[in-house]
Design a protein around this nucleic acid. Structure first.
Length: 451
RNA sequence: GUGGGUAUAGCUCAGCUGGUAGAGCGCCGCCUUGUGGUGGCGGAUGUCGCGGGUUCGAGUCCCGUUACUCACCCCA
Protein backbone atom coordinates (compact mmCIF):
# COMPACT_ATOMS: atom_id res chain seq x y z
CA UNK A 1 0.00 0.00 0.00
CA UNK A 2 1.44 3.37 -0.96
CA UNK A 3 1.83 5.95 1.74
CA UNK A 4 -1.60 7.43 2.26
CA UNK A 5 -2.05 11.16 2.01
CA UNK A 6 -4.02 13.02 4.65
CA UNK A 7 -7.64 13.76 3.89
CA UNK A 8 -8.44 17.40 3.99
CA UNK A 9 -11.01 18.28 6.60
CA UNK A 10 -10.79 14.98 8.46
CA UNK A 11 -8.29 15.74 11.18
CA UNK A 12 -6.72 12.86 13.08
CA UNK A 13 -5.10 13.33 16.43
CA UNK A 14 -1.93 11.86 17.84
CA UNK A 15 -2.31 9.88 21.07
CA UNK A 16 -1.30 12.79 23.27
CA UNK A 17 -3.69 15.09 21.43
CA UNK A 18 -6.49 12.60 21.73
CA UNK A 19 -5.80 12.53 25.45
CA UNK A 20 -6.34 16.29 25.60
CA UNK A 21 -9.58 15.96 23.67
CA UNK A 22 -10.71 13.14 25.92
CA UNK A 23 -10.00 15.23 29.00
CA UNK A 24 -11.98 18.12 27.56
CA UNK A 25 -14.88 15.83 26.79
CA UNK A 26 -14.72 14.34 30.29
CA UNK A 27 -14.75 17.79 31.88
CA UNK A 28 -17.69 18.95 29.83
CA UNK A 29 -19.58 15.78 30.53
CA UNK A 30 -18.97 16.03 34.26
CA UNK A 31 -20.28 19.59 34.38
CA UNK A 32 -23.30 18.84 32.23
CA UNK A 33 -24.22 15.89 34.42
CA UNK A 34 -23.64 17.96 37.52
CA UNK A 35 -26.48 20.12 36.27
CA UNK A 36 -28.73 17.18 35.58
CA UNK A 37 -28.31 16.98 31.84
CA UNK A 38 -28.64 13.43 30.51
CA UNK A 39 -26.40 12.19 27.74
CA UNK A 40 -27.73 10.79 24.50
CA UNK A 41 -26.24 9.81 21.20
CA UNK A 42 -28.19 10.03 17.98
CA UNK A 43 -27.46 8.01 14.87
CA UNK A 44 -25.03 9.45 12.37
CA UNK A 45 -27.60 9.64 9.59
CA UNK A 46 -30.93 11.36 9.16
CA UNK A 47 -33.40 11.27 6.32
CA UNK A 48 -32.50 13.94 3.79
CA UNK A 49 -35.82 15.71 4.10
CA UNK A 50 -35.21 16.10 7.85
CA UNK A 51 -31.79 17.59 7.22
CA UNK A 52 -32.90 19.94 4.51
CA UNK A 53 -36.19 21.02 6.02
CA UNK A 54 -34.67 22.87 8.94
CA UNK A 55 -32.27 25.72 8.91
CA UNK A 56 -30.29 26.67 5.87
CA UNK A 57 -30.99 25.04 2.56
CA UNK A 58 -27.44 25.54 1.38
CA UNK A 59 -25.93 23.24 4.02
CA UNK A 60 -23.44 20.90 2.49
CA UNK A 61 -24.73 17.50 3.46
CA UNK A 62 -22.90 14.25 2.83
CA UNK A 63 -25.33 11.86 1.21
CA UNK A 64 -25.18 8.09 1.71
CA UNK A 65 -25.32 5.71 -1.20
CA UNK A 66 -24.98 1.94 -1.37
CA UNK A 67 -22.07 0.88 -3.54
CA UNK A 68 -24.28 -1.77 -5.14
CA UNK A 69 -27.20 0.53 -5.73
CA UNK A 70 -28.93 -0.07 -9.05
CA UNK A 71 -27.95 3.24 -10.56
CA UNK A 72 -25.01 5.45 -9.72
CA UNK A 73 -27.26 8.38 -9.01
CA UNK A 74 -29.61 6.53 -6.68
CA UNK A 75 -28.91 7.64 -3.12
CA UNK A 76 -30.37 6.14 0.00
CA UNK A 77 -32.29 9.23 0.95
CA UNK A 78 -30.06 9.52 4.01
CA UNK A 79 -27.34 11.97 4.87
CA UNK A 80 -24.86 12.49 7.69
CA UNK A 81 -26.05 15.05 10.21
CA UNK A 82 -24.37 18.45 10.00
CA UNK A 83 -25.08 19.50 13.58
CA UNK A 84 -26.59 18.05 16.74
CA UNK A 85 -29.62 20.28 17.08
CA UNK A 86 -31.58 19.09 14.09
CA UNK A 87 -31.15 15.39 14.92
CA UNK A 88 -32.07 16.20 18.48
CA UNK A 89 -35.32 17.82 17.39
CA UNK A 90 -36.12 14.70 15.41
CA UNK A 91 -35.17 12.54 18.40
CA UNK A 92 -37.52 14.46 20.67
CA UNK A 93 -40.44 14.00 18.30
CA UNK A 94 -39.68 10.34 17.81
CA UNK A 95 -39.33 9.52 21.51
CA UNK A 96 -41.63 12.16 22.95
CA UNK A 97 -43.85 9.54 24.55
CA UNK A 98 -40.95 8.13 26.57
CA UNK A 99 -39.22 11.33 27.57
CA UNK A 100 -39.75 13.43 30.68
CA UNK A 101 -40.22 17.13 30.09
CA UNK A 102 -38.54 19.46 30.54
CA UNK A 103 -35.93 17.25 28.90
CA UNK A 104 -32.37 18.28 29.62
CA UNK A 105 -29.83 16.55 27.48
CA UNK A 106 -26.22 16.85 26.46
CA UNK A 107 -24.72 15.34 23.38
CA UNK A 108 -21.04 15.17 22.48
CA UNK A 109 -20.69 13.77 19.03
CA UNK A 110 -19.26 14.11 15.60
CA UNK A 111 -20.96 15.99 12.79
CA UNK A 112 -20.10 16.24 9.10
CA UNK A 113 -20.27 18.99 6.55
CA UNK A 114 -19.14 18.88 2.94
CA UNK A 115 -17.73 22.39 3.08
CA UNK A 116 -14.23 23.16 1.83
CA UNK A 117 -12.07 22.87 4.91
CA UNK A 118 -9.97 25.57 6.50
CA UNK A 119 -8.27 25.97 9.81
CA UNK A 120 -10.90 25.49 12.48
CA UNK A 121 -13.40 24.31 9.94
CA UNK A 122 -13.46 20.63 9.18
CA UNK A 123 -15.56 18.13 7.30
CA UNK A 124 -15.69 15.89 10.34
CA UNK A 125 -15.74 17.54 13.73
CA UNK A 126 -16.86 17.06 17.31
CA UNK A 127 -19.39 19.26 18.99
CA UNK A 128 -20.70 19.43 22.54
CA UNK A 129 -24.30 20.44 22.79
CA UNK A 130 -26.72 21.05 25.63
CA UNK A 131 -30.39 21.72 25.18
CA UNK A 132 -33.54 21.89 27.24
CA UNK A 133 -36.78 21.03 25.51
CA UNK A 134 -40.30 21.35 26.88
CA UNK A 135 -43.72 20.48 25.61
CA UNK A 136 -45.91 23.37 24.41
CA UNK A 137 -44.12 26.09 26.30
CA UNK A 138 -40.59 26.45 27.66
CA UNK A 139 -40.11 28.93 30.51
CA UNK A 140 -37.65 31.67 29.76
CA UNK A 141 -35.37 30.94 32.69
CA UNK A 142 -33.96 28.00 30.74
CA UNK A 143 -32.41 30.48 28.32
CA UNK A 144 -30.38 31.74 31.24
CA UNK A 145 -29.64 28.28 32.54
CA UNK A 146 -28.13 26.81 29.38
CA UNK A 147 -25.85 29.82 29.09
CA UNK A 148 -24.76 29.45 32.69
CA UNK A 149 -24.14 25.72 32.42
CA UNK A 150 -22.09 26.11 29.26
CA UNK A 151 -20.17 28.98 30.80
CA UNK A 152 -19.35 26.90 33.84
CA UNK A 153 -18.32 23.92 31.72
CA UNK A 154 -16.10 25.96 29.43
CA UNK A 155 -14.48 27.85 32.27
CA UNK A 156 -12.97 24.59 33.42
CA UNK A 157 -11.17 23.98 30.15
CA UNK A 158 -7.52 24.79 29.38
CA UNK A 159 -8.43 27.31 26.70
CA UNK A 160 -7.72 30.96 26.02
CA UNK A 161 -10.35 33.30 27.46
CA UNK A 162 -13.78 32.97 25.93
CA UNK A 163 -16.43 35.53 25.16
CA UNK A 164 -20.11 34.68 25.10
CA UNK A 165 -22.03 37.11 22.96
CA UNK A 166 -25.76 37.23 23.44
CA UNK A 167 -28.55 38.85 21.53
CA UNK A 168 -32.26 38.38 21.10
CA UNK A 169 -34.15 37.90 17.87
CA UNK A 170 -37.29 39.48 19.31
CA UNK A 171 -35.30 42.54 20.24
CA UNK A 172 -33.84 43.15 16.82
CA UNK A 173 -36.91 42.05 14.92
CA UNK A 174 -39.07 44.32 17.07
CA UNK A 175 -36.64 47.13 16.48
CA UNK A 176 -36.67 46.64 12.72
CA UNK A 177 -40.45 46.51 12.73
CA UNK A 178 -40.50 49.57 14.92
CA UNK A 179 -38.61 51.58 12.34
CA UNK A 180 -40.92 50.30 9.65
CA UNK A 181 -38.73 47.76 7.90
CA UNK A 182 -40.81 45.65 5.54
CA UNK A 183 -38.59 42.57 5.74
CA UNK A 184 -37.07 42.21 9.23
CA UNK A 185 -35.63 38.76 8.43
CA UNK A 186 -33.81 40.22 5.45
CA UNK A 187 -32.35 42.95 7.61
CA UNK A 188 -31.13 40.36 10.11
CA UNK A 189 -29.32 38.43 7.37
CA UNK A 190 -27.53 41.56 6.19
CA UNK A 191 -26.69 42.80 9.69
CA UNK A 192 -25.13 39.40 10.37
CA UNK A 193 -22.45 40.22 7.80
CA UNK A 194 -21.20 43.21 9.77
CA UNK A 195 -18.15 41.41 11.14
CA UNK A 196 -17.08 40.40 7.66
CA UNK A 197 -18.05 43.15 5.24
CA UNK A 198 -17.08 46.81 5.48
CA UNK A 199 -19.80 48.99 6.98
CA UNK A 200 -20.34 50.77 3.68
CA UNK A 201 -21.23 47.56 1.92
CA UNK A 202 -23.65 46.59 4.67
CA UNK A 203 -25.11 50.05 4.40
CA UNK A 204 -25.71 49.76 0.68
CA UNK A 205 -27.12 46.24 1.00
CA UNK A 206 -29.56 47.44 3.63
CA UNK A 207 -30.72 50.10 1.21
CA UNK A 208 -30.74 47.95 -1.93
CA UNK A 209 -31.78 44.50 -0.69
CA UNK A 210 -33.86 45.33 2.38
CA UNK A 211 -35.36 48.50 0.93
CA UNK A 212 -34.50 50.74 3.86
CA UNK A 213 -34.26 54.50 3.58
CA UNK A 214 -31.10 56.24 4.82
CA UNK A 215 -32.67 57.07 8.17
CA UNK A 216 -33.66 53.46 8.75
CA UNK A 217 -30.20 52.26 7.73
CA UNK A 218 -28.63 54.59 10.28
CA UNK A 219 -30.95 53.34 13.00
CA UNK A 220 -30.08 49.71 12.20
CA UNK A 221 -26.36 50.43 12.32
CA UNK A 222 -26.71 52.37 15.56
CA UNK A 223 -28.47 49.40 17.12
CA UNK A 224 -25.80 47.02 15.86
CA UNK A 225 -23.14 49.24 17.36
CA UNK A 226 -24.45 48.71 20.87
CA UNK A 227 -22.82 46.20 23.16
CA UNK A 228 -22.25 45.99 26.89
CA UNK A 229 -21.21 43.52 29.53
CA UNK A 230 -24.00 44.71 31.80
CA UNK A 231 -27.60 45.77 31.21
CA UNK A 232 -26.68 49.32 30.26
CA UNK A 233 -27.48 48.41 26.66
CA UNK A 234 -31.18 48.72 27.51
CA UNK A 235 -31.01 52.46 28.02
CA UNK A 236 -28.91 52.91 24.93
CA UNK A 237 -31.45 51.06 22.81
CA UNK A 238 -34.30 53.06 24.30
CA UNK A 239 -32.40 56.25 23.54
CA UNK A 240 -32.80 55.44 19.85
CA UNK A 241 -36.48 56.20 20.34
CA UNK A 242 -37.91 53.13 18.62
CA UNK A 243 -41.04 51.53 20.05
CA UNK A 244 -42.45 48.10 19.46
CA UNK A 245 -43.97 45.48 21.71
CA UNK A 246 -41.56 42.79 20.47
CA UNK A 247 -38.64 45.10 21.13
CA UNK A 248 -39.69 45.50 24.76
CA UNK A 249 -39.97 41.76 25.25
CA UNK A 250 -36.60 41.23 23.66
CA UNK A 251 -34.95 43.86 25.81
CA UNK A 252 -36.35 42.27 28.96
CA UNK A 253 -35.20 38.82 27.91
CA UNK A 254 -31.72 39.87 26.92
CA UNK A 255 -31.31 41.84 30.13
CA UNK A 256 -32.39 38.76 32.07
CA UNK A 257 -29.77 36.58 30.37
CA UNK A 258 -27.03 39.14 30.97
CA UNK A 259 -28.07 39.53 34.60
CA UNK A 260 -28.38 35.81 35.05
CA UNK A 261 -24.85 35.21 33.80
CA UNK A 262 -23.29 37.69 36.21
CA UNK A 263 -22.23 34.91 38.57
CA UNK A 264 -20.42 32.82 35.96
CA UNK A 265 -18.49 35.71 34.54
CA UNK A 266 -14.80 35.75 35.34
CA UNK A 267 -11.51 36.91 33.85
CA UNK A 268 -11.45 33.97 31.48
CA UNK A 269 -15.11 34.02 30.55
CA UNK A 270 -16.79 37.19 29.44
CA UNK A 271 -20.50 37.62 28.77
CA UNK A 272 -21.63 40.47 26.61
CA UNK A 273 -24.87 41.71 25.10
CA UNK A 274 -24.03 42.31 21.47
CA UNK A 275 -26.82 43.75 19.38
CA UNK A 276 -25.09 43.09 16.07
CA UNK A 277 -25.27 39.36 16.62
CA UNK A 278 -27.89 37.75 14.42
CA UNK A 279 -26.91 34.20 13.46
CA UNK A 280 -27.73 32.86 10.06
CA UNK A 281 -29.98 30.01 11.10
CA UNK A 282 -33.59 31.00 10.74
CA UNK A 283 -35.10 28.65 13.33
CA UNK A 284 -34.04 30.82 16.24
CA UNK A 285 -36.88 32.80 17.73
CA UNK A 286 -35.50 34.57 20.80
CA UNK A 287 -32.18 34.41 22.60
CA UNK A 288 -29.19 33.79 20.34
CA UNK A 289 -25.68 32.94 21.50
CA UNK A 290 -22.26 32.91 19.97
CA UNK A 291 -18.99 32.01 21.63
CA UNK A 292 -15.66 33.46 20.58
CA UNK A 293 -12.17 32.58 21.68
CA UNK A 294 -10.21 35.70 22.59
CA UNK A 295 -7.18 36.03 20.34
CA UNK A 296 -8.65 33.55 17.88
CA UNK A 297 -11.45 35.65 16.45
CA UNK A 298 -10.36 34.59 12.98
CA UNK A 299 -11.85 31.19 13.75
CA UNK A 300 -15.20 32.96 13.91
CA UNK A 301 -17.59 31.57 16.46
CA UNK A 302 -16.45 28.47 18.32
CA UNK A 303 -19.91 27.90 19.69
CA UNK A 304 -23.42 29.06 19.28
CA UNK A 305 -27.05 28.42 19.88
CA UNK A 306 -30.27 29.93 20.99
CA UNK A 307 -33.95 29.59 21.55
CA UNK A 308 -36.04 27.76 18.94
CA UNK A 309 -39.74 27.69 19.64
CA UNK A 310 -40.89 25.63 16.70
CA UNK A 311 -37.99 23.49 15.50
CA UNK A 312 -39.48 20.29 16.91
CA UNK A 313 -43.08 20.05 15.86
CA UNK A 314 -45.12 17.19 14.46
CA UNK A 315 -48.07 19.37 13.63
CA UNK A 316 -50.00 18.39 16.73
CA UNK A 317 -47.43 19.01 19.41
CA UNK A 318 -44.69 21.56 19.54
CA UNK A 319 -41.58 21.20 21.64
CA UNK A 320 -39.81 24.51 22.11
CA UNK A 321 -36.18 24.36 23.12
CA UNK A 322 -33.12 26.34 23.92
CA UNK A 323 -29.56 25.16 23.63
CA UNK A 324 -25.98 26.01 23.04
CA UNK A 325 -23.19 24.10 21.43
CA UNK A 326 -19.44 24.26 21.58
CA UNK A 327 -17.02 23.28 18.83
CA UNK A 328 -14.49 20.91 20.35
CA UNK A 329 -12.56 20.24 17.15
CA UNK A 330 -12.75 23.86 16.09
CA UNK A 331 -11.01 25.06 19.24
CA UNK A 332 -8.72 22.16 20.06
CA UNK A 333 -7.20 21.36 16.69
CA UNK A 334 -5.88 24.89 16.01
CA UNK A 335 -4.49 25.16 19.53
CA UNK A 336 -2.83 21.76 19.35
CA UNK A 337 -1.37 22.29 15.89
CA UNK A 338 0.27 25.43 17.23
CA UNK A 339 1.73 23.39 20.07
CA UNK A 340 -0.13 25.49 22.62
CA UNK A 341 -2.07 22.59 24.01
CA UNK A 342 -0.46 19.26 24.67
CA UNK A 343 0.40 16.81 27.41
CA UNK A 344 3.49 16.16 29.45
CA UNK A 345 3.59 12.54 28.31
CA UNK A 346 2.64 10.60 25.23
CA UNK A 347 1.40 7.50 27.01
CA UNK A 348 -0.72 6.80 30.09
CA UNK A 349 2.08 4.83 31.78
CA UNK A 350 3.52 6.50 34.84
CA UNK A 351 6.08 3.75 35.41
CA UNK A 352 8.31 1.78 33.07
CA UNK A 353 9.32 -1.49 34.71
CA UNK A 354 12.87 -2.18 33.57
CA UNK A 355 13.77 -5.57 32.20
CA UNK A 356 17.07 -7.23 33.14
CA UNK A 357 16.90 -10.00 30.57
CA UNK A 358 14.18 -11.99 28.80
CA UNK A 359 14.42 -14.75 31.42
CA UNK A 360 13.24 -12.34 34.09
CA UNK A 361 10.31 -10.94 32.13
CA UNK A 362 7.91 -12.83 34.40
CA UNK A 363 9.40 -11.07 37.41
CA UNK A 364 8.94 -7.68 35.77
CA UNK A 365 5.39 -8.59 34.79
CA UNK A 366 4.72 -9.40 38.43
CA UNK A 367 5.91 -5.97 39.51
CA UNK A 368 3.67 -4.37 36.90
CA UNK A 369 0.72 -6.42 38.08
CA UNK A 370 1.35 -5.34 41.67
CA UNK A 371 1.45 -1.68 40.60
CA UNK A 372 -1.69 -1.96 38.49
CA UNK A 373 -3.50 -3.67 41.36
CA UNK A 374 -3.62 -0.35 43.16
CA UNK A 375 -4.19 1.78 40.10
CA UNK A 376 -0.73 2.75 38.91
CA UNK A 377 -0.65 2.65 35.09
CA UNK A 378 2.57 1.01 33.94
CA UNK A 379 4.24 -1.04 31.27
CA UNK A 380 7.17 -3.42 31.14
CA UNK A 381 10.14 -2.51 28.95
CA UNK A 382 9.81 -3.82 25.41
CA UNK A 383 13.25 -5.43 25.40
CA UNK A 384 16.13 -6.02 27.73
CA UNK A 385 18.30 -3.24 26.38
CA UNK A 386 20.92 -1.55 28.45
CA UNK A 387 19.34 0.41 31.26
CA UNK A 388 20.40 3.64 29.66
CA UNK A 389 18.30 2.72 26.65
CA UNK A 390 15.39 1.70 28.76
CA UNK A 391 15.51 5.00 30.61
CA UNK A 392 15.62 6.80 27.30
CA UNK A 393 12.60 4.81 26.14
CA UNK A 394 10.74 6.18 29.15
CA UNK A 395 12.08 9.67 28.65
CA UNK A 396 10.93 9.79 25.03
CA UNK A 397 7.42 9.01 26.07
CA UNK A 398 7.49 11.23 29.12
CA UNK A 399 7.10 8.32 31.51
CA UNK A 400 8.39 9.85 34.75
CA UNK A 401 9.44 6.73 36.68
CA UNK A 402 11.54 3.66 35.93
CA UNK A 403 11.37 0.65 38.19
CA UNK A 404 14.54 -1.36 38.85
CA UNK A 405 15.12 -4.64 40.62
CA UNK A 406 18.45 -5.10 42.38
CA UNK A 407 20.59 -8.18 42.11
CA UNK A 408 19.51 -9.06 45.64
CA UNK A 409 15.83 -8.78 44.70
CA UNK A 410 15.25 -5.36 46.26
CA UNK A 411 13.10 -2.83 44.44
CA UNK A 412 13.96 0.74 43.56
CA UNK A 413 12.06 3.38 41.67
CA UNK A 414 13.79 6.24 39.91
CA UNK A 415 12.27 9.59 39.11
CA UNK A 416 14.09 10.25 35.85
CA UNK A 417 13.29 13.96 35.95
CA UNK A 418 15.18 14.53 39.18
CA UNK A 419 17.39 11.47 39.09
CA UNK A 420 16.28 10.51 42.58
CA UNK A 421 16.17 6.78 43.11
CA UNK A 422 14.63 5.26 46.23
CA UNK A 423 13.72 1.84 47.58
CA UNK A 424 10.05 1.00 47.05
CA UNK A 425 7.50 -1.75 47.41
CA UNK A 426 5.56 -2.53 44.21
CA UNK A 427 2.46 -3.47 46.15
CA UNK A 428 2.18 -0.12 47.91
CA UNK A 429 4.25 2.48 46.05
CA UNK A 430 2.25 5.17 44.37
CA UNK A 431 3.41 8.35 42.65
CA UNK A 432 2.31 11.83 43.68
CA UNK A 433 -1.27 12.43 42.49
CA UNK A 434 -0.13 14.91 39.86
CA UNK A 435 2.00 12.24 38.20
CA UNK A 436 -0.66 9.55 38.14
CA UNK A 437 -2.21 10.75 34.91
CA UNK A 438 -0.80 12.74 32.02
CA UNK A 439 -1.21 16.48 32.54
CA UNK A 440 -2.69 18.79 29.97
CA UNK A 441 -0.24 21.58 29.33
CA UNK A 442 -1.84 24.74 28.02
CA UNK A 443 0.70 27.28 26.89
CA UNK A 444 -2.09 29.47 25.61
CA UNK A 445 -3.15 30.32 29.11
CA UNK A 446 0.30 29.79 30.61
CA UNK A 447 -1.08 27.50 33.22
CA UNK A 448 -1.26 23.78 33.70
CA UNK A 449 -4.51 22.16 34.47
CA UNK A 450 -5.12 18.89 36.16
CA UNK A 451 -8.42 17.85 34.75
C1' G B 1 -18.85 24.76 -5.62
C1' U B 2 -15.46 29.58 -7.19
C1' G B 3 -10.56 31.79 -7.04
C1' G B 4 -5.19 32.08 -5.32
C1' G B 5 -0.74 29.65 -3.16
C1' U B 6 2.17 25.35 -2.16
C1' A B 7 4.19 20.14 -2.83
C1' U B 8 12.26 18.44 -1.73
C1' A B 9 14.81 13.51 4.44
C1' G B 10 10.76 11.68 10.19
C1' C B 11 10.00 17.48 11.13
C1' U B 12 11.07 22.76 9.55
C1' C B 13 12.95 24.33 5.23
C1' A B 14 17.28 25.85 1.45
C1' G B 15 18.39 24.59 -3.55
C1' C B 16 20.32 31.21 -8.29
C1' U B 17 19.51 32.22 -15.43
C1' G B 18 18.25 23.94 -16.15
C1' G B 19 24.21 20.49 -15.13
C1' U B 20 21.82 13.96 -11.72
C1' A B 21 20.26 16.97 -3.59
C1' G B 22 21.66 20.12 1.10
C1' A B 23 21.15 22.43 6.31
C1' G B 24 19.17 22.52 11.21
C1' C B 25 16.49 19.56 14.42
C1' G B 26 15.36 14.54 15.15
C1' C B 27 17.11 9.37 14.61
C1' C B 28 21.14 5.40 15.05
C1' G B 29 26.17 3.90 16.74
C1' C B 30 30.58 4.73 19.60
C1' C B 31 33.32 7.37 23.55
C1' U B 32 30.30 5.10 28.24
C1' U B 33 30.24 -3.78 28.93
C1' G B 34 23.83 -2.62 32.39
C1' U B 35 21.17 4.04 34.97
C1' G B 36 19.33 8.51 30.28
C1' G B 37 19.73 13.93 29.72
C1' U B 38 25.19 17.80 28.53
C1' G B 39 29.68 17.13 25.41
C1' G B 40 32.87 14.77 21.53
C1' C B 41 33.35 11.57 17.21
C1' G B 42 31.02 8.83 13.46
C1' G B 43 26.58 7.12 10.55
C1' A B 44 21.89 6.26 7.90
C1' U B 45 17.82 8.45 5.45
C1' G B 46 14.89 10.95 -0.30
C1' U B 47 11.10 7.12 -6.72
C1' C B 48 12.45 16.14 -5.24
C1' G B 49 3.57 14.51 -4.94
C1' C B 50 2.13 11.73 -9.62
C1' G B 51 1.90 11.51 -15.22
C1' G B 52 3.45 13.55 -19.63
C1' G B 53 6.26 17.26 -22.59
C1' U B 54 10.61 20.49 -24.00
C1' U B 55 16.02 19.46 -23.64
C1' C B 56 22.26 16.34 -24.66
C1' G B 57 20.55 16.97 -19.56
C1' A B 58 14.63 18.78 -15.44
C1' G B 59 13.99 19.37 -8.17
C1' U B 60 14.38 23.82 -11.47
C1' C B 61 10.82 25.31 -17.64
C1' C B 62 5.68 23.86 -19.92
C1' C B 63 0.97 20.99 -19.72
C1' G B 64 -2.11 17.83 -17.02
C1' U B 65 -3.41 15.58 -12.44
C1' U B 66 -3.82 14.71 -7.23
C1' A B 67 -3.18 16.38 -2.42
C1' C B 68 -2.54 20.11 1.04
C1' U B 69 -3.41 25.19 2.20
C1' C B 70 -5.66 30.22 2.13
C1' A B 71 -9.82 33.43 0.69
C1' C B 72 -15.11 33.36 -0.83
C1' C B 73 -19.61 30.60 0.48
C1' C B 74 -21.26 28.58 5.04
C1' C B 75 -20.69 27.73 9.81
C1' A B 76 -18.90 24.49 15.31
Amino acid sequence: MPKPTPLSGFPELLPEQRFVEQQVIDTLRRTFELHGFAGIETRAVEPMDQLLAKGETSKEVYVLRRLQAESESADSGMGLHFDLTVPFARYVLEHAGKLEFPFRRYQIQKAWRGERPQEGRYREFTQADIDVVMKDELPFHFDVEVARVMAEALSGLPLPPLRLRVNNRKLIEGFYRGIGAADPAGVITIIDKLDKLPVDQVRSQLAADAGLDPGQVDQCLRLADISSTDTSFVDRVRALGVHHELLDTGLDELAAVIDGCASVRNDRFEVEASLSLARGLDYYTGTVFEIYMVGYEFLKSVGGGGRYDALASDGKNTYPGVGISFGISRTLVPLMSRGLLTTDRKVPSVVLVALIDEESRAASDEIATALRAHGVPCEVAASAQKFGKQIRYAERRGIPYVWFTNADGGHEVKDIRSGDQVAADPSTWTPPTDDLRPTVVATATTEEQHL
